[in-house]
Simulated assay, not measured.
Amino acid sequence: MKTTTSLLLCLGMASSALGQQPGLTITASIKDLPADQWVYYREMGGNDQRDSVKTEAGGFSMSVPIAAGEGNTYLISIGRNYQDPNSTLLLYLDQGTLTINGDGPRFKDADLSGSPWVEAYNDFNAAIRSEEMIAINKKMGELRSKQDTAALKALQPEYAGAAAEREEKIVQWIKAHPASPISAWAIRMNLQQRDVGEQEQLLNAVHETAKDNIPARDLARRIAGTKATAVGQPAPEFTQNDPEGRPVSLRDFRGQYVLIDFWASWCVPCRKENPHVVAAYEKFKDKNFTVLGVSLDNPGKKADWLAAIEKDGLPWTHVSDLQGWNNAASRLYAVSAIPANFLVDPDGKIVAKNLRGKALEQTLSEILDK
């Protein structure tokens, strides 16, 4: 089955342990693919890893060490030209075999075959394919290149309608395939904006044997975390080090209103939001309010974190374990996108969350100006 690169999300099913060797073997046959180019694979949220092979003329083969029950989403790239959509594939990889065949260039319109999870992916992709969405996305890309913001805004209702229709197809496929691990993956990757109760209901309907992969376990954790950090719930306690290596705990702020602000130096929307947080801090810092910044900066990037604090003029307390998206506090709070924040009252209860721009000052004014 042919797919466009923009929709080439390979979903996986846990393969049978009978007769299978551990890990995944990938074999690619691609017309006119040049030799001597490194092929990289990266687990979602991880770092580049170079396999021990390069491309040969017309293809490559590689092994990815995946243990049973550890299937996850990966990026496979020929070279590191991530701006070229034909050079990358975003796939859910699991144990077994994956064969990639195409006429090129590189991964463009590639055929996927191999283990049963590949066929399951093909079925899912065919079921949710939307020609309307493809056409709208193409049109939006053209409008962005022309910087036609008015036309883009006018196209939003049409896009929203097509997206809702595609989302409903995803839901129906999930309900019809409770024994497929693809169902858990699809909830995790495509339905995060849906009500957490609906996500939980869909996940509970998936068979236990079909939830033996990382996305399913991550989804369960996120659902539990979202419920635990709902407005009215006690804020989960955590401790991380400040830039000087001193441990700072959320409980240290008891008796104050504290905004737990999840951000990172590499996050452009976070940096754009920082002036609003600074303005709110300066306005209310003398009214029993402060901020606790939690950075999702990556390993080895402490200098970037500190430089961003200084450049953006962020005078409050900062902590991080420098583990990127694996930051322990962000996982505890089920943070899936940044910036994200949680307003905690003096008793340690969450009273608001995800306050942006003027909404932050307005909410603080309603609470603190009484």
Rank of each mutant, 00 (worst) to 15 (best):
I170G: 15
T88D: 09
K353P: 02
Y92F: 10
G71D: 15
A340N: 08
N288K: 06
L202D: 12
V351F: 01
Q240D: 11
N204E: 11
E131H: 00
E119L: 12
E56K: 01
Y281P: 01
G58E: 05
E366G: 05
S336D: 11
L306K: 08
H177Y: 05
V171E: 09
S336Q: 13
I367Q: 05
L143T: 12
A110S: 04
K283R: 15
Q323C: 05
K370W: 04
A126Y: 10
I350K: 05
Q192H: 06
L355C: 10
A135L: 08
G161Q: 08
E167S: 05
P247K: 08
Q362P: 01
P105H: 01
G141C: 09
V196Y: 09
K175Y: 15
D321Y: 15
D51A: 00
V344A: 13
G357M: 09
R217E: 14
A329H: 00
D48I: 04
E366I: 07
M133S: 00
D347I: 03
Q240K: 04
R50M: 07
E282Y: 13
E56N: 02
Y82R: 06
R188I: 05
A68P: 05
L98T: 00
T5V: 13
R42S: 04
S295N: 09
S130G: 04
D218A: 06
N327E: 09
I367D: 06
L202H: 12
F289K: 05
P243N: 10
P247N: 12
G114T: 05
D109H: 08
A352P: 09
V39A: 02
K272F: 13
C267M: 07
P234I: 13
D84K: 04
I76A: 03
A14W: 10
G324N: 08
Y92D: 11
N190D: 15
P269Q: 07
G46D: 11
G71S: 11
L75G: 07
Q49R: 10
H177F: 13
G69P: 10
S249T: 11
